[in-house]
């Protein structure tokens, strides 16, 4: 079939639109990357667009020599690993019984859980609960309150329901307990889905900062995102001055603008791990969203 002229015009415009979209999505990162390796002077003069000017990596040297960054990186990795492990265990423990039709009380439990998707105690009552539990200013205040995302548990339950009942029944007839069925049959068959949900959780932990802001009093426990917030958004002078000491600065005028180069470099340092990983994991996410949308 021949394409009409209108169709061809549309296709050209659509193509241009998509290219523009990609530019708009990527440009901020390329710009930040270029600024982070440019000299303070050219940044100040607004001469940096896409190509760095006065190339240097002083800002990165300063950041990598600064122990707060390393410490917060380590904190983030710790919270992400511990948090995701708790998330996955709890989500599976909830999803498997709910996927079993012979689980008496399933309806009531589902309602108890679903209510929390539409109504919650809110910020302050949750904060007070954490305080009463005595886990304020500990890692548990970060990893326990969000131990289960109801949405993710429903997605996982749907995955589990897709596994043929015959497999479970056969195992039970062979004398396996429910725990064994979960560990030996259900889990091995759902590795890809568990990976998907695990990545949902992990990216959430990696990017989280609000809970840390609320629940940590001790700043040495801060995750990377919160330190990033102090430096980039709040212009925290203590952190900035400490960073500037690590930079080689010739004169007073440059000292002013070095703060900006540093901010760009800090953004890059915190974004790079995600930028490297995301092209490979995004398809799992897409799959998860699609399953969630079918059985939301």
């Amino acid at each position: 079939m021949k394409k009409s002229a209108g169709r061809k015009t549309f296709e050209v415009f659509n193509f241009i639109f998509m290219i523009l979209l990609c530019v708009v999505m990527l440009y901020p990162f390329l710009y930040v990357a270029a600024c982070s390796v440019s000299s303070s002077a050219s940044l100040q003069a607004g001469r940096v667009g896409l190509i760095p000017e006065g190339f240097n990596v002083d800002a990165y040297k300063a950041i990598l020599g600064y122990k707060v960054i390393w410490r917060s990186y380590r904190n983030t990795i710790y919270y992400t690993v511990l948090g995701t492990a708790i998330n996955l265990i709890m989500t599976m423990l909830g999803a498997y019984p709910l996927s079993r039709e012979d689980f008496y009380g399933r309806g009531v439990f589902t309602i108890i859980i679903a209510i929390t998707m539409y109504f919650s105690g809110g910020l302050i009552p949750t904060f007070l609960t954490i305080n009463y539990l005595g886990i304020y200013d500990t890692v548990w205040a970060i990893v326990l309150p969000g131990a289960i995302s109801t949405m993710n548990m429903i997605i996982m339950r749907t995955f589990f329901q897709g596994i043929p009942d015959a497999l479970e029944e056969a195992a039970i007839i062979d004398g396996a307990s429910d725990m064994q069925v979960l560990l030996r049959i259900i889990l091995p068959l759902s590795v890809p889905s568990i990976m998907t949900i695990g990545m949902f959780y992990a990216v959430g932990h990696w990017n989280a900062w609000f809970d840390s802001l609320i629940y940590f009093r001790t700043s040495t426990k801060y995750p990377l995102q919160l330190v990033l917030r102090q430096i980039v958004i709040e212009n925290n002078t203590n952190e900035l001055e400490a960073l500037e000491k690590g930079m080689y600065i010739e004169d007073e005028a440059q000292l002013n603008s070095s703060a900006e180069t540093l901010k760009y470099a800090v953004i890059m340092v915190s974004a790079i791990p995600i930028l490297c990983v995301y092209p490979f994991v995004q398809r799992y996410f897409v799959k998860g969203v699609m399953i969630g949308s079918i059985k939301g």
């Binding site: 709890m90 423990l93 909830g94 498997y96 019984p97 709910l98 079993r100 012979d102 689980f103 008496y104 439990f109 108890i112 859980i113 929390t116 109504f119 919650s120 105690g121 809110g122 302050i124 009552p125 949750t126 007070l128 609960t129 539990l133 326990l144 309150p145 131990a147 289960i148 307990s177 429910d178 725990m179 979960l182």
Partner: peptide, 27 residues
């Protein structure tokens, strides 16, 4: 027969009570 399912589900239920329903009462 399904007692293990309840054992598995217990921590989940406790989680929802402590971190979701207690704050609701706290309102």
């Amino acid at each position: 027969k399904n007692r293990w399912l309840y054992v598995m589900f217990a921590p989940v239920l406790i989680y929802y009570i402590i971190f979701k329903y207690v704050p609701m009462v706290g309102i």
